[in-house]
Amino acid sequence: MSASTTGTRQIAMVLDLNKCIGCQTCAVACKSLWCKDEGTDYQWWCTVNTMPGRGTPKDYEEMGGGYKDSIPVRGIAPSREDFGGGWKFNHSEVFFDGNPEHKPLRVAGEQPQWGPNWDEDQGAGEYPNSYFYYMPRLCNFCTHAACVDACPRGAMAKRSSDGIVVRDEDRCRGYQFCAEACPYKKIYFNYELKISQHCIGCIPRLEQGVAPACARQCPGRLVFVGYLDDEDGPIHKLVNEWKVALPLHPEYETLPNVYYIPPLAPAPFNEDGSVNEAGSRIPPEHLESQFGPGVHDAIDTLKTEVEKARSGEASGLMDLLIAYNWQDLFPDFTRDPIDITWD
């Protein structure tokens, strides 16, 4: 729809949370590619957290930003401590400089109280009905990008060719209005360069026809990438046809373009220890708090299609999610990077 009404296109992603194993490969792939320079030591543009949990930065869902009834909601910019990370360790002291008292390997200086994946695998619920799932997060390439609107410098923009939200780092003065406005808190401050930074959508890769690092390196095969308006592509089918892929926190009103297949979970137990086949281990309210009211239908559709597969029936949805050929995850970005020759 966006292509026809505005003449622009939007790249979107679908992340299938039923395939995500929280391995952090996307996060490491991203960091290894983009966050190696000064001031980026603590930055993880792509993070994976255990949900329910406090997330990255800590309690990001309580930091505000986005819109309420189209009016911008003033948020706070996360602090260095809220993100945590960027740790330097005492390797040399422990290993090489003489350590007869056997001091352990630790973060040098003050001990951390939070980090990018601090509450990993803690989850919620009462044993044996405990539960958790994994949630990778990156820039949402929002259609109504609060960060762009909030930047007084005009340093941020939404590209017409693919809808990636980019920052002109030369114009950026580090006011952090963007970080306040972003309700997903996916904008970091570079304390060395005194500018803000965030996911660049792997633009250099996209421009060469190569899938983003987080998607192409995902061993769980759960990251679909494509144009939202491509009716033959997986994104359109999952978002608009099957309606099983949902935006995270739609109530922030930024119209995010990263969509999630919501998590199923093991059948819970009744008080007497018997299995509650129809029950839902993850409270529906929790799912709704993440993915909005559409989540219930999405879960029902998923369950119906899984059942179909169990009874031997064909399911277009299941086939789509299986992605028999890896490259079907990002049909427009299948180029092998090694085929590129740089001048």
Binding site: A145, D149, G163, P204, E207, L255
Partner: peptide, 13 residues
């Protein structure tokens, strides 16, 4: 909800 203006097509540095 309005859309963020998408008139420009800037790249990254």
């Amino acid at each position: 909800v309005t859309k963020t203006e998408t008139t420009s097509n800037p790249g990254v540095s």
